[in-house]
């Protein structure tokens, strides 16, 4: 199986504080890969490195055969990597439709075209409405995104990434702050819209992780502790210690 994303020895320092410490990670084409780990482990930082928000202090990142570390976020996105954000990062003062349309315009490579009017571009409109439909947001089409309920904003957050039709999708805690019912809906949505894609997902809800993921990587203090199938991870002692701390030691002592 070929790798779609390969990280080799990736390190990130902030003011001499090492947040990511020599991460090697291979994401296989077509898999659903979950990235888990305690708060502050560096999961979001890793996403920021992959998507060009940060430049690694050392190491390399390859998307298929293209080296992408150090590229601008928009270039990496154009290559076929799209992401959603842990903190909702939609266009709050625009309508839901306008939000989605921004993504579709970008996807169709029209974002800086300035000859024809956008309103006459039927394919943009149709595709935007189609994607809103898929994300169960059609009913909120003309509402301002900032006025939506939290669950709908989450759906839009994920929808904007998916709408770009990327080969690789990175979702940063898509279920954060959702009720169990809303979480079920968003997981169903993620399953549907990432069917033919490669997915890397950061998630704290272990039910979601073990339900969704083909493989799991565990990150702790900027280091990958283990990568493996859900079963392997469940039985891994290092992982247990990272999550449960010294509790087991205390119990045995």
């Amino acid at each position: 199986m070929t790798n779609i994303l390969t990280l080799k020895g990736v390190t990130k320092d902030f003011d001499r504080f090492r947040v990511i410490d020599g991460v090697d990670l291979e994401i296989r084409e077509g898999e659903r890969h979950a990235l888990i780990g305690p708060n502050g482990a560096g999961k979001s930082t890793l996403f920021n490195l992959i998507t060009g928000h940060y430049v690694p202090s050392s190491g390399t990142i390859h998307f298929k055969d293209t080296r992408i570390d150090g590229l601008a976020p928009y270039k990496i996105t154009k290559l076929g990597i799209a992401r959603s954000f842990q903190i909702i990062n939609v266009f709050k003062e625009l309508t839901v439709f306008e939000n989605m349309r921004n993504a579709i315009v970008a996807k169709q490579g029209l974002a800086v075209k300035c000859i024809r009017r956008l309103a006459v571009m039927g394919q943009v409109r149709n595709e935007s409405e189609y994607m809103l439909d898929r994300c169960n947001l059609a009913a909120y089409r003309d509402e301002l995104a900032g006025t939506l309920g939290y669950g709908q904003q989450r759906a839009l957050e994920v929808g904007l990434a998916i709408a770009l039709d990327p080969e690789l999708v990175l979702l940063d805690e898509p279920g954060a702050g959702l009720s169990p019912e809303e979480t079920r809906m968003i997981v169903k949505l993620i399953r549907e819209v990432t069917a033919q894609k490669t997915l890397v997902i950061i998630e704290h809800d272990m039910d979601v992780v073990f339900d969704l993921a083909d493989r799991i990587s565990v990150l702790s203090y900027g280091v990958i502790l283990a990568t493996g199938t859900p079963k392997e991870i469940r039985n891994n002692t290092a992982v247990r210690e990272a999550y449960l701390g010294t509790l087991t030691d205390n119990e045995t002592a």
Partner: peptide, 13 residues
Amino acid sequence: VNSHRMGFLGVNV
């Protein structure tokens, strides 16, 4: 409204 997200939609801001 949100130039940061624009960039992550693949737009050369």
